[in-house]
Design a protein around this nucleic acid. Structure first.
Lengths: 120, 120
DNA sequence: TTGACATATTCCATTATCAGAATATAATTT
DNA sequence: AAATTATATTCTGATAATGGAATATGTCAA
């Protein structure tokens, strides 16, 4: 078996750094392909191909306008990722607290560095 | 060129659904490999291999205890993803508002469905 | 209908993933 | 030292994504 399809879900689509760049660009507003080509400095086919992945996953929407195609964000699928990571939110908060605790209580310096036991 | 390495960053590591399962499991607390094998119902080598990816990316930490290796979450890298998606948070909020607006104002029924213009 | 412009698709070569099976390493017990 | 337990690594085969180059499609203008 191979790696999961890029178009399987938002997680896979967004794993590609360039695709995140495209989404970041579209965060400023809708754009026709050529504007993205210029803004990103890539070949036009690459931009189109990345857009087609984003479109298939539903991270982006298109609209025709003359011979142009105007792309815009469809952020709903990003919320899935946001929600999933939010599940772990208290872990990194907890971790930050521990870092603070350690910085303050410098007396015990030779303790083995264990993992934060996530009880509960 | 091929796809970005799985170990390039948290985005790629987490794109694999099974790796998200592992992280979800570890959210309940630290676990030795064998417990994960039983909890997940996969072959031991697959569990170890996924763990090694998560380890290389820094999403997970290990600790030796006898012949066991106890794995635990290291959620810091997940925060990167959370923060990135948070950039787009207002887009889906905006989208929800628009859905509400439409539901309330049902008079204009035949408008072309355009994209929310994200004028920042 | 020819030409120009905007965008999408196809073909190619390279590369890496993933599951599964087999095997290797490492620590513990007898 | 041999057996046992826990975990990691290697090999294989199938799959597919990526950029680049070339080309196709689609739309508008003359």
């Amino acid at each position: 078996m191979a790696r999961a399809r890029t178009t399987l879900d938002a997680f896979n689509a967004v794993a590609e750094p360039r695709r995140r760049q495209v989404l970041g660009l579209l965060a400023h507003g809708e754009l026709p392909v050529n504007d993205m080509v210029h803004a990103l400095g890539w070949q036009q086919p690459q931009v189109s191909k990345h857009l087609s992945v984003l479109l298939e996953v539903g991270l982006v929407r298109v609209r025709r306008e003359g011979r142009q195609r105007i792309y815009g964000l469809d952020a709903g699928r990003l919320k899935e990722i946001h929600d999933w990571t939010a599940t772990f939110e208290h872990f990194w908060q907890h971790q930050l607290e521990r870092i603070k605790e350690r910085a303050e209580a410098k007396k015990t310096s030779a303790r083995p560095r264990g993992i934060v036991p996530p009880r509960g």
